[in-house]
Amino acid sequence: MSKSQTDKANQSLIRAVQLCKKYNGQPALNSLNLNIAPGEIYCLLGANGAGKSTTINLFLDFIKPNSGHAFIDGMDVQKHPIETKKSLAYIPEIVMLYRNLTGIENLRYFSTLAGHNHYTDEELYGFLDHAGLQNDASNKRVGGYSKGMRQKVGIAIAIAKKAKVLLLDEPTSGLDPKASNEFSELLLSMSANGVSILMATHDLFRAKETGTRVGIMKHGNLVDDLHTEDIGHADLEALYLKHMHD
């Protein structure tokens, strides 16, 4: 590794080193090496079962790797399961919340458990507002929320947490284009504040629009890793399909 590469790795908020995961002997993730710097939005593309969710679950320490290491903010997630989570926020395909609690109660619960018990009601409403959720909706029970509203609470949780790292697992699938666009705007503003984002997605258009880098996965391997500025929409799609057909 050259000196500049080492520096870059040290700066990375999200880092994987020879990360491997097998399910029943079948490799789900094969020697993944990844470095995502502050402010980068890294979009993982790939078919279902390519290893995108496995990668995110490994960073969350929800599953244990067979070999290799995952680092968040320089700390091994297996050795520091609680500390690494202090600096990350996770938004899955559907943000799961307590249906009998209101949006604001969910936000308060999650931020308090994350160690931010100092927020006033105004601040919490402010986070939800910033994430695009109206005040009257914030006071309704989550049981009646649409998917888009849930995702907004998820964003608010991430904002309130002052996360340095965002792990997103197909967060916009099923969202209408307007909601999807708002979501992207939020990601861009967070990335402008130095947040590192790893997002698994099927949305090539969003990946090109929002992402700074794109990785294509296939059968557990990262087969391509490129900067979005170096490639056009059409080229990305062609490249993706080429990989899928191989």
């Binding site: 929800f62 399961p81 989570k85 996770y90 799961m96 307590y98 458990l113 994350a114 947490k161 792990l167």
Partner: peptide, 14 residues
Amino acid sequence: EDGTLRQLMSIGVA
């Protein structure tokens, strides 16, 4: 089953 446990664990709750 509801997935809230994932959400909680991602928050860093012991």
